[in-house]
Design a protein around this nucleic acid. Structure first.
Length: 721
DNA sequence: TCAATCCGTATC
DNA sequence: ATACGGATTGAC
């Protein structure tokens, strides 16, 4: 594999002649130092070891987090490891005198390196865990995000579990059952199933079956069929002898995709079957499943975020469900997003891509606008037949201005809608943005928000108070202190009123409004997977909605979703609403409690996420925000950020730096350490790669000069404002 | 004159 | 990050 990279980082390094290690031998009688040991080891190696006859040089990706050392290093392969040290295996090498982990990227005839090469210390295992495809992808992801290959490889390759490699620990001899033969003859036309409901659905499946790299920006029809649609696409790829990678936001979605794959006859762990990967598997099980994919025993890998790097053989399709979910953003450096990684991966591998959900992100709209992906969306007639009717709960009480009044009671229309739906015999979903009882409370007289007066280091904590139940004592969301005998700091009043009503309180109120109707809550620690299609009120926080065929959904407190101080507030609100509305039967009703003049509300009423995303993209272009442009966030101590900015091309537009979130009413002070600043750097999309390269070079320079203070570089961070 | 310490540079 | 080599200090 050709491990080339754009060498912005290397240009900063002085081109020093290598040291001749010859004089090392003279010094060996010195004190027993590590250095002496290293020299002794090296010269002993040189005397006793011979390089392998075939391709004696191994190019190694060393597990070294330093930005200026992010390049392959060459080692000699000793004769005894000649057969084992194949590309992709884990090795131990002596690097700067230390034994370090690494991967063999390639075996070559000779090295460009001027100095003398060390020998590989040992091959950890013969398993070729780093495939050429993943090695290339990891390099591309590191470059895209101004990060290091070592960081990406740590995300991509699970920890080794030695016993699992031999199969002894699992009692699961690989390849024990006979494999069905996928080859032979032209691919039969795949059965479209639910894809027949999309104008471009059958054509997309045909392309996957034929191995063409069709790339679809998918808007899923409401209802429970999306897992089957994903499974059909994946099975189509597998039947054509290609691999498929499916990434979903969480374990719940994964269970549904898993179920759909089984339903289509793709048994888990079976030959040519699929495996599922989640973060909560133990190291042994995780490695076992991952190895099944790597060894070509499972053509389909479905999993959460980290599965985006799963090494399936002969990749033919990548699938990403609900690409707007923030769980798709990796929180560890270099902070890659599953959508970007899978798009990059499909592009590099010549694989098809199926990316989307009920909603559409501005990022996916951008991929369509750029011509990279094509719309895979239902037509209006099919939508009308499938989606529930959405109505706004126009609110007489000045939405948003008097938050307390808005949150305190349910709109009358919502109660009437729920009552009518319950009479049809189905469950009613009530989506409430916040969990708990009262998530925020205020003085009953002057309406100032109730805040914590506990002293922390001499200063009042000032955190927001909440109420865990009707008769509970208010406690602080930041420090947890109980506010016994609370009194308003402003006016001295001692009665509280609600500002933000949570799911628990809503459940309580609905229970009173509908005596005799079963009320259940789902959210937080207790998520109900599914509820029966019987009259009941199901109160859920966004993302925790139990599966059911709901007769109605009430989407409450939309202002709380839309009012968040985020660039993506509208997009996120629509995404959560559509996810809930998609669970409602076609003849059911959805009531959205939000200002109907807002674009997100309109998009829900018309069930038109595509136009909304296009408009969102146009607005971001006007504001100069991603994905219309490429943006980097640089965070750290003021001096460190300044030095990094000094090391990047002054031609890029720099916003800031500004102090990071001065401890404000929204976040506890600990979340924003003093002296942290953040700068944003903006580049046109055309210069995006250049920006990443410049930032990587600046990081390399800082690392080479051992400048202190970490600087976090994030490209296109999810939350800009 | 020798060793202890600091700096700069390289890490195959 | 270490780990070196060479320069620089400081005490005999």
């Amino acid at each position: 594999m050709a491990e080339t990279r754009n060498d912005g980082a290397l240009e900063l390094l002085p081109d020093m002649p290598s040291l001749e290690p010859a004089k090392a031998a003279e010094n060996t009688k010195g004190p027993e130092s590590a250095a002496g040991a290293k020299r002794a080891k090296r010269s002993k190696d040189a005397r006793t070891l011979r390089p392998a006859a075939e391709r004696p040089v191994a190019r190694i990706a060393v597990d070294m987090p330093l930005a200026h050392l992010d390049r392959p290093f060459d080692y000699l392969v000793p004769e005894r490891l000649g057969a084992q040290a194949r590309p992709g295996v884990r090795v131990r090498v002596r690097f700067a005198g230390q034994l370090t982990d690494g991967f063999v990227l390639d075996r070559v005839d000779s090295s460009e390196h001027q100095g003398r090469l060390s020998y590989l210390e040992r091959v950890v295992s013969a398993e070729q865990v780093l495939t050429p495809e993943i090695a290339g992808l990891a390099r591309a992801v590191a470059d895209r995000y101004a990060g290091t290959l070592a960081d990406v490889l740590r995300l991509a390759i699970p920890q080794r579990h030695a016993a699992t490699e031999t199969g002894k620990a699992t009692g699961d001899p690989p390849g024990a059952s006979p494999a069905q033969d996928p080859g032979g003859g032209p691919p039969p036309r795949p059965e479209a199933g639910p894809w027949a409901r999309y104008p471009a659905g059958p054509a997309f499946l045909d392309a996957v079956a034929a191995g063409r790299p069709a790339r679809a920006a998918w808007t899923a029809l409401p209802g429970p069929t999306w897992p089957e649609e994903i499974a059909r696409a994946a099975v189509t790829a597998a039947s054509a002898g290609r691999g498929a990678v499916i990434v979903v936001p969480d374990a719940r979605d994964l269970a549904r995709v898993d179920e759909a794959l089984v339903m289509l006859g793709d048994g888990p762990d079976g030959p040519d079957g699929h495996v599922t990967l989640t973060a909560d598997l133990g190291p042994a099980e995780r490695y076992r499943r991952w190895l099944r994919a790597r060894r070509g025993q499972a053509r389909i890998v479905a999993g959460t975020r980290a599965a985006m790097f799963a090494p399936v053989e002969n990749l033919g399709l990548v699938v990403l469900w609900d690409d707007g979910d923030d769980l798709h953003a990796e929180p560890r450096a270099p902070y890659p997003n599953a959508r970007e990684v899978l798009a990059l991966r499909a592009h590099r591998a010549g694989a098809a891509a199926l990316i989307g959900g009920f909603a559409r992100t501005a990022e996916l709209a951008q991929l369509v606008q750029a011509g990279w992906a094509r719309d895979l969306t239902p037509d209006r007639a099919m939508l009308r037949a499938t989606a529930a009717r959405v109505r706004p709960a126009a609110d007489e009480r000045e939405l948003g201005r008097d938050e307390a009044a808005t949150a305190a009671r349910l709109p009358g229309l919502a109660l009437r809608t729920a009552r009518a739906a319950l009479e049809t015999g189905g469950p009613v979903l009530v989506q409430v943005p916040r969990r708990g009882y009262l998530a925020a409370i205020a003085c009953g007289r002057c309406r100032a928000q109730a805040r914590c007066v506990a002293l922390i280091g001499g200063a009042p904590c000032n955190g927001p108070l909440r109420l865990a139940g009707q008769h509970a004592t208010p406690d602080c969301r930041w420090c947890g202190a109980l506010a016994t005998s609370w009194r308003c700091a402003g006016c001295g009043h001692d009665r509280l009123r609600a500002i933000v009503t949570g799911a628990t309180r809503t459940a309580e109120e609905l229970g009173r409004a509908f005596p005799g109707v079963k009320v259940r809550t789902s959210g937080g620690d207790l998520v109900l997977p599914r509820v029966p299609d019987q009259p009941a009120l199901i109160i859920a926080t966004p993302g925790a909605e139990p599966l059911a065929g709901y007769a109605a959904a009430l989407l409450l407190d939309g202002w709380a979703l839309l009012g968040r101080p985020s660039l993506r507030a509208g997009e996120e609100a629509l995404r959560r609403w559509l996810a809930a509305a998609a669970l409602v039967r076609p003849d059911g009703t959805v009531l959205v409690h939000a200002d109907q003049s807002l674009a997100a509300t309109q998009a829900l009423i018309r069930w038109d996420p595509v136009t909304f995303a296009e408009r969102e993209l146009a607005e971001r272009a006007e504001l100069g925000f991603p994905p219309a442009v490429r943006m980097a966030a640089v965070t750290g101590e003021a001096a460190a950020v300044a030095s990094l900015l000094a090391g990047t091309d002054p031609a890029f537009e720099v916003l800031g730096p500004v102090p990071v979130e001065p401890a404000g009413p929204e976040h506890p002070p600990e979340a924003a350490p003093d002296d942290q600043v953040r700068a944003l750097i903006r580049a046109s999309r055309a210069r995006g790669a250049e920006l990443a390269r410049a930032l990587a070079a600046a990081q390399a320079g800082r690392s080479a000069r051992k400048e202190g203070g970490g600087v976090r570089v994030q490209l296109d961070p999810a939350e800009l404002i």
